[in-house]
Design a protein around this nucleic acid. Structure first.
Length: 922
RNA sequence: GGGCGUAUAGCUCAGUGGUAGAGCACUGUAUUGACAUUGCAGGGGUCGGAAGUUCAACUCUUCCUACGCCCACCA
């Protein structure tokens, strides 16, 4: 195949469609010419914020979905004339980024603590400048029409100001406070994390039963001199501070207020009555470790312990340390909580050693299990599945740890967002997520926002020597509060990354300054996010938005699902089933991938990856490419008007009507954020209507000797219709449509990306529609009959209609060339067909007789017609039955009855026509 | 334990109170000018199971089953 060079006009399309070449070219063109956000000072704004990807991130398939949906909406609104702002940016991603840079140091036998905090943070900035933000370039491959000049970063100077103001405001309003309580502590990252960052997983574990000896002279009612307790965490025995029993539990009533003497430590701890102890469970007595268990912390408080007095037996890495009372035996100090992974040799973890010592000293109550053979077997512990908390970043078991942290009073901030969703001020799409949203928001816990990291927004709190805290946006202010001469030290901690990204919808626009940008683009119009960050991010934006700006950040929240592997499993690096969107773009083109994402995005369902389907949309792009080539070869070019051109020919009137219908359906789908419906609408219009019927219908118009006026009209209409396709398809397939648009005419100053959305302003001519529908019906029926009878599809056959319906008569008069071409029938003769064998085609109200001079197999034709008769008769019978039912006629909607009557008449007539045809066969 | 979602053609999925659609796959067929990354034609499901509401249910209600997800302190 010869590759055609562009001609002098520069508009001839290459014979093959090469996505890669046009993608790079057009993206650069759009970006360089500022077309992602043209000056539209008076236009209605449309605003959508890119959920800031981590600065460490690269484009994965989930982004491809998320970003495609947003870009479709953005491009759609831009085409509709709005001042569309799709604002990009990145998140500093505290933990993730610090981990990346620390890993790099490790690779060089270096570590963070070899540097000062400032030095390390500088290194992170260096890393960001060199290798961060790779994802931004990858977003260009996908065609994202973001406003690069507005790019934001959650650690920019501006964002820092916004964050500090937010913190101080919250503090002054009593909505942020410092408190000592148990937090979820990640011993690997050595920082506190929020509830949301904890992932519970089932892990195989054990349940041990122990004897806790009662103090001298005390026994239970049954004479027993110990209390049995059970635990899944024996190592915490070292920090036990009580044993709890239920207040109504008779078995223990006499020992409440007495003490047990703990094994190993010899600590004397009280037996307390607390509702937490469930008499039905185990022995009904439970050991209480307030410093290392969330429930026990509450029990401990109720028992009168102050948080400051609660014993802690673990250090920041969750290794055993001495408790404040000094009762932990030396041999435990420094051991790993579960197993000793730090020291070489045979040494055990604290858990193992505790069990071993307890057993040696006779405090272990063995578990009696049955073997498979039914024999009894003595085990140290009962095997049990334990719901275990893991840190989502560090991947290690989370330890409840007693520390001072900063908390946001989320319950108060949640009130207005809940109300907003309830009243519909904020619409969650799909609606089914509302319940989940309410469920979480109405039970929301204080949000731990401090992190023991270096990379992030440092908390604006200063302490004097007495532990007094001064919260202010600057050190000078804090100093002023404290009084001059008071020595202040700043809080070492930084804020949770989500604290700053919660400000994204407005801080990106200049808030807290009252900028024009903010005034125009806040609230935003839409948020698109995966449901996995509904709580992490979406809900927090709502809380902060309402608190700081008094407005909801957006009126609409669209939640999409996950992109899954082809087999339905979740994609993950460890499984090795991750699909790289850039690879798909290389293979099929960005347009195909985008279209795939849109077409698969039905609300409320995950998307399964399907390469064949992406391929199909690549084929769709090729189809459009070739259709445009056809147009060009027939002198069909860019249209002059937004409104539909004047048309007299039926096919032209018909396609104009079809365009109008398509625009309407597409707009409705977009209004509902039904991306799948929108994509399918434009797909089927382009392929099924425009390519398969319209282009075929108009071919005769360009034949030699055809009317020049008809050709001119058709060129105008076809060019217009193609333009409308390109505009409507552009949000989904921006690259190929822009390329074809540019090749359809000299439109250097009118690029598609900022073109005008279709406004057909055309009235549909029902006669034209009826005529073309009849041609389509006849063509389809004729082809089907030929196929079944084994008659060559290409052979031209004569055809007769004895007494044509008005529609048929009109078509025969005006559109016989189309019939000739599509149905392969010579001009239809009005009149009786010659006697003899014939194929009979039922088209609407007409029977077209096609004599077949002996080649026809009468039996095959009879069978074919009988089949059609049977289908129609069955339908008629069913309708008759329904209409014979008095209840239906009386109680059904009048339209339904009317329709049933009309359908019945139609089928009855069809049966009669087929009967006549069968009779003619003899 | 609580909540949510999904079960429709071989596969992946749309869908509507009036007897079901798409893409892929499959079958047959076509190739001298848009396109084989194609055209044409066709086979294939009674819509997870049961009951109920209704003139009418795949579409509404209840229950059941299976699968998936989220939340939750059972020691």
């Amino acid at each position: 195949m010869t590759s055609e060079k562009n001609t002098a006009s520069g508009n001839t399309l290459a014979t093959t469609f090469d996505p890669a070449e046009i993608e790079a070219r057009w993206y650069a063109h759009w970006e360089e010419n500022g077309l992602f956000r043209p000056e539209r000072p008076d236009a209605e704004p449309f605003t959508i914020m890119l959920p800031p990807p981590n600065v460490t991130g690269s484009l994965h398939i989930g982004h491809a979905l998320d970003h495609t949906l947003m870009d479709i909406v953005t491009r759609y609104e831009r085409l509709r004339g709005k001042d569309a702002l799709f604002l990009p940016g990145m998140d500093h991603a505290g933990i993730a980024t610090q981990m990346v840079v620390e890993r790099q140091l490790e690779a060089k036998q270096d570590k963070r603590t070899n540097y000062s905090r400032e030095e390390f943070v500088d290194k992170v900035w260096d890393w960001k400048a060199e290798s961060g933000g790779m994802i931004l370039d990858q977003m260009r491959r996908l065609g994202e029409s973001v406003a690069w000049d507005q790019e934001a970063f959650t650690m920019s100077d501006h964002f820092t100001k916004a964050v500090l103001k937010t913190f101080v405001d919250l503090y002054n309003d009593g909505l942020i406070y410092r408190d000592k309580r148990l937090v979820n502590w990640d011993p690997k990252l050595k920082t506190a994390i929020s509830d949301l960052e904890v992932e519970t997983q089932d892990v195989a574990g054990h349940f041990w039963h122990f004897k806790y000896p009662l103090e001298d002279g005390v026994t239970l009612a049954n004479g027993q001199d110990y209390i049995e307790v059970a635990t899944t965490r024996p190592e915490t025995i070292l920090a036990d501070m009580a044993v709890a029993v239920h207040p109504t539990d008779e078995r223990y009533a006499r020992v409440v207020g007495k003490h047990v003497v703990l094994p190993l430590t010899g600590r004397r701890v009280p037996i307390v009555a607390d509702e937490h102890a469930d008499p039905e469970l185990g022995s009904g007595a439970v050991k209480i470790t307030p410093g290392h268990d969330f429930n026990d912390f509450e029990v401990g408080k109720r028992a009168g312990f102050q948080p400051a007095d609660m014993l802690n037996m673990l250090d920041a890495e969750a290794n055993v340390c001495q408790t404040a009372d000094g009762l932990v035996p030396d041999e435990f100090i420094g051991l790993h909580r579960f197993r000793n992974i730090h020291l070489a040799g045979e040494s055990k973890g604290a858990r193992e050693l505790v069990v071993q010592r307890m057993k040696e000293q006779g405090y272990l109550i063995p578990h009696i299990a049955k073997t498979k053979k039914g024999e009894e077997q003595e085990l140290d512990a009962e095997p049990r599945t334990i719901a275990t908390p893991f840190g989502d970043r560090g991947g290690v078991v989370i330890e409840p740890w007693l520390t001072d942290q900063w908390y946001v009073d989320a319950a108060k901030l949640a009130v207005k967002p809940i109300e907003a969703v309830k009243t519909g001020a904020v619409e969650i799409v799909p609606k089914s997520w509302e319940k989940t949203f309410f469920n979480w928001m109405e039970n929301i816990q204080p949000w731990c926002v401090s992190r023991q990291l270096w990379w992030g927004h440092r908390i604006p709190a200063w302490y004097d020597g007495d532990g007094n805290v001064f919260v202010a946006e600057t050190e000078d202010e804090a100093q002023a509060f404290a009084g001059s001469g008071v020595e202040l030290t700043r809080d070492d901690d930084v804020l949770d990354t989500w604290f700053s990204s919660a400000l994204w919808p407005f801080a990106t626009l200049g808030w807290p300054e009252r900028t024009d940008l903010l005034a125009k683009h806040y609230p935003n119009d839409l948020l698109v996010s995966g449901f996995d960050i509904l709580f992490f991010w979406d809900a927090r934006m709502m809380m902060m938005g309402r608190y700081l700006t008094g407005q909801d950040p957006w009126p609409r929240l669209y939640l999409h699902g996950l992109v899954r592997a082809a087999d339905g499993s979740k994609m993950s690096k460890s499984k090795g089933n991750v699909v790289d969107p850039l690879g798909l773009i290389d293979t099929y083109g960005a347009d195909a991938l985008r279209f795939f994402m849109a077409a698969m995005e039905s609300q409320g369902r995950d998307i399964k990856m399907d390469d064949k389907r992406v391929e199909g949309y690549r084929n769709f792009a090729t189809k459009l490419w070739n259709a445009t080539r056809f147009c060009q070869s027939n002198g069909i070019g860019a249209s002059e008007t937004i409104a539909a051109p004047e048309a007299k020919l039926a096919a032209n009137q018909w396609i104009i009507g079809e365009v109008a219908k398509t625009v309407e359906v597409l707009e409705a789908a977009m209004a509902d954020l039904r991306f799948d419906a929108a994509a399918n609408t434009i797909y089927h219009f382009t392929w099924d209507r425009f390519c398969d019927w319209y282009l075929e219908l108009i071919k005769p118009v360009f034949a030699d000797g055809a009317s020049e006026a008809a050709a001119a009209e058709t060129r105008a209409v076809a060019g217009w219709a193609l333009d409308q396709i390109l505009v409507m398809l552009h949000p989904f397939m921006p690259f190929i449509t822009e390329e074809l648009w540019s090749k359809q005419g000299d439109r250097a100053n009118y690029p598609l990306i900022t073109a005008k959305w279709p406004e057909p302003q055309a009235s549909v001519n029902p006669q034209a529609v009826a005529a073309i529908d009849w041609v389509i019906t006849l063509t389809t029926a004729t082809r089907g009959a030929r196929n079944e009878l084994g008659i060559s599809p290409g052979e031209k056959l004569a055809a007769f209609i004895a007494s044509p319906s008005p529609v048929a008569a009109g078509v025969i008069e005006r559109s016989s060339a189309a019939i000739e071409r599509l149905a392969r029938l010579t001009p239809v003769t009005v009149g009786e067909a010659p006697a003899g064998p014939a194929m009979q085609v039922i088209a609407g109200d007409d029977v077209v007789i096609v004599p077949l001079d002996g080649v026809i197999d009468i039996e095959a034709e009879r069978s074919r017609l009988s089949k059609a008769r049977e289908a129609s008769a069955k339908e008629a019978k069913s309708l008759e039955g329904r209409l014979g039912n008095a209840n239906f006629v009386e109680r059904a909607k009048p339209e339904a009855v009317e329709k049933a009557r009309a359908d019945l008449a139609h089928h009855t007539a069809e049966v009669e026509r087929i009967d006549a045809a069968l009779a003619r066969l003899g």
